[in-house]
Amino acid sequence: MSASSLLRILHVEDDADIQAIARLALEGVGGFEMETCGTGEEAMHLARTFHPDLILLDVMMPDMDGVTTLRRLRGDPQTEAIPVVFMTAKIQQEEVARLRGEGALDVLVKPFDPMTLAHTLRQIWARMAPDG
């Protein structure tokens, strides 16, 4: 997948504070290369240009929500293979199940613990690509 040992994460999140926290959480630990954006449209663009290993995708966003964004990503040959992990504040079982059904690799719930976020993402990544 990625040539470097850095895991390239695209964080799509409309809340700037949460963007900042995630960035701090991941960059503080190290081993991640972060790109963030606030809308689905930007995410589509960055997915093609930044070539993330994994997209951390907020569900509730203005204009284009996470699910639509994921479907758009899946519809584009350039981005269809990029694994996506949803991040949602809706923690009801059925909601989580719905998101999994959309083909997300995993669903993380908000609020999240920034101190374990890096570890969690690495675990997901490891599961995804055992050889990596």
Binding site: I21, A89, K90, P111
Partner: peptide
């Protein structure tokens, strides 16, 4: 209820996140 839940969670995510990072020595 669902909206409130979401609306409360978003700022809480930042609060909890910030505090977590501070407490974790980030």
């Amino acid at each position: 209820v669902s909206t409130v839940s979401h609306e409360l969670r978003t700022p809480l995510t930042s609060i909890r996140g910030s505090l977590g990072l501070l407490a974790g020595g980030a």
